[in-house]
Nucleic acid binder design. Structure first.
Length: 552
RNA sequence: GCGUCCGUGGCUCAGUUGGAUAGAGCAACGGCCUUCUAAGCCGUGGGUCGCGUGUUCGAGUCACGCCGGACGCACCA
């Protein structure tokens, strides 16, 4: 049993005793006992606001309640209890318990940060899911960073997770891709062509066409257009998908499942529509089939099958989400760009209409990214409507900086990405600051080795008594709870912040506590402490998909 | 007009199911390298938490209303 549970149980027992003794007269439900790490270390190792919360049901002042609990409570791990503020109970933990915990963490080695298996039915998370018609831009980059970090965090928290990419490889945008590549293909072969009106103007389309010319030359030139388009569509699609996978892989993003929309056409879409029809959720109007989504909170009803018989994007999405539900996940998470928020109501409505529990589908919205260079907003290209690509960003600032910058803000805050700052190799740049802490530790180990100082299997942690050491230890202790919180809230920025604070704590320790040159026992205890610190920094950076260099 | 998100020092942002004197970084100013990487550390100044009302023992946090910003409101994806 961990210390936290032990204290909560002790408070619980104390309250029960006082109720039995008649000191507390219970009227109503007992509030939950929550234990938190106080904002300041003068407030002890843990604190609870239980006395304040229960003032009403006991008809006593928080101070009186706190006094009573303090008098009655007993737990082996508690050194002392203090009452402070408006009725906070602050707990101080015995040193031996603290050092015992430190030893446990030390023995865990690199496994520290991996929480016990939750034995849950897998959670599914779908993210990026950009159309395979162009290159990923920075907005996708933020989604890729956030999604992959959330996957890592959930797994560290002990959840089973399946990550998935939904490839929109059917419908208009693929035809558009085909037409655009076709035009570029013909252009490259010297033909005069009119570029399709809504075609993709990006330079990457020319690259794709070039690749096709390289491989197949003018092989398709003589084909009639209606035969050439499907061939080029397929070639372009493969090329685009590969580029996408390559960029994501370079960005340290891997998916368990690549789900092709084509699988849904036409059978699974027809099935979904059929079920909706049978459930009385579909009606016909103006020659189209409409979903009664207003019944379930949508602003208006939505077309699922167009007048011309072609299913809408929503129809495919309904079939896709139906398929997700049928795969039996405990929860499904979609990470969407904030510009898609208007879409939430209709998808959820459709799931309810199908008889599924819409609450199992959690849709996270990711706010927009603005890039700044030299203090100026980097504008999107007017002609192509494209922003800087993820590939260009990785080249300019590096994968580590790009990922960390995407992750350091809450996903529902708009992100101002300062390209100049991301490139700086100084403490102004949080990525370097954190990585430097890790590299510093590795450097100390090198020096230690040269001085014949080695890690001990059972170091004497009792020697770690300075403020800097205690602060560092406390910060390390917070890590598992931080992972738990980050997982609960799908909040990678918590980890980004945590590892920054941990690095800061280490840098302070570094100033105050020397390792090489001090008495051997103490040196070994400190060496063990920084080993744990390095493991924790590395683990947290891994969750973010940021590397932990051993030298800088 | 409707909807979603945001509004916290000059700038960019945290803020633990409502709790202790609202915290970081950058910028400004002042210190610290004969000793494990100064890519670092220590210190100083700077806030009516957009505005108002309400709920509460207690509100940056919750509710309602305004103001400001971003995004969205297709038989496009």
């Amino acid at each position: 049993m961990d210390v936290k549970t032990e204290i909560i149980n002790a408070i619980n027992s104390a309250v029960e005793l006082s109720i039995k003794a008649g000191t507390f007269k219970l009227e109503g439900d007992l509030p939950e006992i929550s234990l938190e790490v106080p904002p300041k270390k003068e407030f002890g190792d843990f604190s609870t606001n239980f006395a304040m919360k229960s003032a009403k049901i006991f008809h006593m002042s928080p101070k009186q309640i706190a006094e009573e609990i303090k008098a009655v409570i007993s737990a082996d791990c508690i050194e002392k209890v203090e009452i402070a503020g408006a009725g906070f109970l602050n707990f101080y933990i015995k040193q031996e318990v603290i050092f015992g915990r430190l030893k446990e963490i030390y023995d865990m080695g690199e496994k520290f940060g991996q929480l016990p298996d939750k034995k849950n039915v897998p959670i599914q998370i779908e993210y990026v899911s950009a159309n395979p018609t162009g290159l990923l831009h920075v907005g996708h980059g933020r989604g890729a960073a956030a999604g992959s970090a959330i996957v890592n965090i959930l797994r560290a928290a002990g959840y089973h997770v399946v990550s998935e990419y939904y490839i929109n490889d059917a419908g208009n945008q693929m035809e558009n891709l085909a037409k655009s590549v076709n035009a570029r293909y013909l252009e490259l072969l010297g033909e005069k062509v009119e570029f399709p009106e809504n075609g993709y103007h990006g330079a990457d389309i020319i690259d794709t066409a070039k690749k096709i010319v390289e491989h197949y030359g003018d092989k398709y030139l003589e084909l009639p257009e209606e035969e050439r388009l499907p061939v080029l569509e397929n070639l372009a699609y493969q090329n685009k998908l590969n580029e996408l996978k390559k960029d994501l892989s370079n960005f340290r993003v891997e998916f368990d499942v690549w789900f092709s929309e084509r699988i849904l056409h036409p059978q699974k879409i027809n099935d979904a529509v059929k079920v909706l029809r049978e459930r009385g959720e579909i009606y016909e109007k103006d020659g189209a089939l409409w979903l009664k989504s207003t019944k379930y909170g949508d602003d208006k009803d939505r077309v699922v099958i167009r007048e011309n018989g072609v299913p809408t994007y929503l129809a495919a999405d309904i079939a896709y989400h139906k398929n997700k539900y049928e795969r039996g996940f405990s929860q499904m998470i979609n990470l969407w760009g904030a510009d898609h928020h208007g879409y939430i109501a209709r998808v959820k409505a459709a799931m309810t209409a199908l008889g599924f529990d819409a609450n199992k589908l959690k849709i996270l919205l990711l706010q927009m990214v603005s890039l700044y260079r030299g203090g100026e907003l980097v504008k999107m290209s007017k002609r192509t409507g494209e922003s800087i690509t993820l590939r260009e960003l990785m080249e300019e600032v590096g994968t580590d900086a790009a990922r960390y910058f995407f992750l350091m803000r809450s996903i529902d805050s708009q992100l101002d990405f300062d390209l100049d700052l991301a490139k700086k190799q100084s403490s102004e740049n949080p990525v370097y600051y954190i990585q430097y802490a890790h590299a510093r530790i590795c450097s100390i180990f090198k020096q230690a080795e040269e001085n014949n100082l080695k890690l001990d299997a059972a170091p004497n942690f009792n020697l770690l008594t300075t403020e800097a050491e205690k602060d560092l230890i406390n910060k390390i202790f917070e890590y598992p709870a931080e992972i738990e919180k980050a997982a609960e809230e799908y909040a990678p920025q918590r980890i980004a912040r945590y590892v920054y604070d941990l690095a800061a704590q280490f840098h302070s320790f570094y100033r105050d506590c020397r390792i090489i040159g001090v008495e051997t026992e103490l040196a070994k205890a400190r060496l063990a402490l920084i080993k744990i610190t390095a493991h924790t920094i590395k683990h947290a950076l891994n969750l973010l998909g940021v590397s932990a260099p051993t030298s800088m």
